[in-house]
Simulated assay, not measured.
Amino acid sequence: MPFRPQGKHLLLALACLVAACTPGVEAPSRERDKPAGVAVPGGAEGIVFGVLGDAVTLDPYSPLASDLTFTLVRPLFPSLFRFDRDGRPRAMLARSATETDLGVRITLRRARWSNGRTITARDVVASVRRADPPSGLAAVASARAIGARRVELRGASTGWRQTLATAAPILPGGGGVHPGGVFGGPFRLSSFTPGLEAVYRPNPRWWGAEPQSELIRVQFVQDLEIMLALLTSGRLDGAAPPSSVNLGQRLDAAGLSHSAVLGWESLWFDLEGAQLNDSGRAGVARAIDRLALERGFVRTHGRLATTLHPGPGPTAAEGAWHRPPRPAV
Rank of each mutant, 00 (worst) to 15 (best):
M1E: 14
M1N: 12
M1R: 14
M1K: 14
P2T: 10
F3S: 13
R4D: 07
L10N: 09
L11R: 06
L12F: 07
V18M: 08
A19V: 07
C21A: 13
P23G: 10
V25C: 03
R32D: 15
G37Y: 09
V38Q: 08
V38E: 07
V38I: 14
A39K: 12
P41M: 09
G43N: 02
A44M: 08
G50S: 06
A55C: 05
A55Y: 06
A55T: 02
V56H: 09
T57Q: 01
L58M: 03
D59G: 02
Y61T: 01
A65V: 02
D67L: 11
T69C: 07
V73P: 04
S79H: 02
L80P: 06
L80K: 09
F81D: 04
D86G: 08
A91C: 03
L93T: 08
A94I: 09
S96E: 06
R105P: 00
R105D: 05
T107E: 15
R109D: 10
A111M: 04
S114K: 06
G116W: 10
G116T: 07
R130H: 07
A131H: 11
P133H: 03
P133Q: 02
P134K: 01
L137Q: 04
A141Q: 15
R144E: 04
I146E: 07
A148C: 03
R150F: 07
G155E: 13
T158I: 11
L164P: 02
T166S: 12
P172D: 08
G180L: 06
G180P: 07
V182Q: 07
G184S: 07
G185C: 06
P186H: 02
F187S: 05
R188L: 12
S190P: 00
S191G: 11
P194Y: 14
P202L: 07
P204T: 03
Q212L: 15
Q212K: 15
L215A: 02
F220G: 12
V221A: 12
Q222S: 11
Q222R: 13
L224V: 12
I226Y: 01
A229R: 10
L230E: 14
R235N: 05
D237A: 09
D237Q: 11
D237C: 06
A239G: 01
D252V: 03
D252P: 02
A253F: 03
A253G: 04
A253I: 00
A254D: 01
G255C: 01
S257V: 13
H258L: 01
A260Y: 05
V261S: 06
G263M: 00
W264L: 03
F269Y: 14
E272C: 09
R281M: 04
A282T: 05
G283P: 01
V284S: 03
A285H: 05
R286H: 08
R290W: 00
R290C: 00
G296P: 00
G296C: 03
V298R: 02
V298P: 00
R299C: 04
T300G: 04
T300L: 10
G302H: 00
T306W: 04
H309P: 11
P310R: 00
P312E: 10
G313Y: 13
G313R: 15
E318A: 15
G319P: 12
A320F: 12
A320E: 12
H322I: 14
H322K: 11
H322C: 09
R326E: 10
R326M: 07
R326W: 04
A328P: 04
V329T: 14
V329F: 15
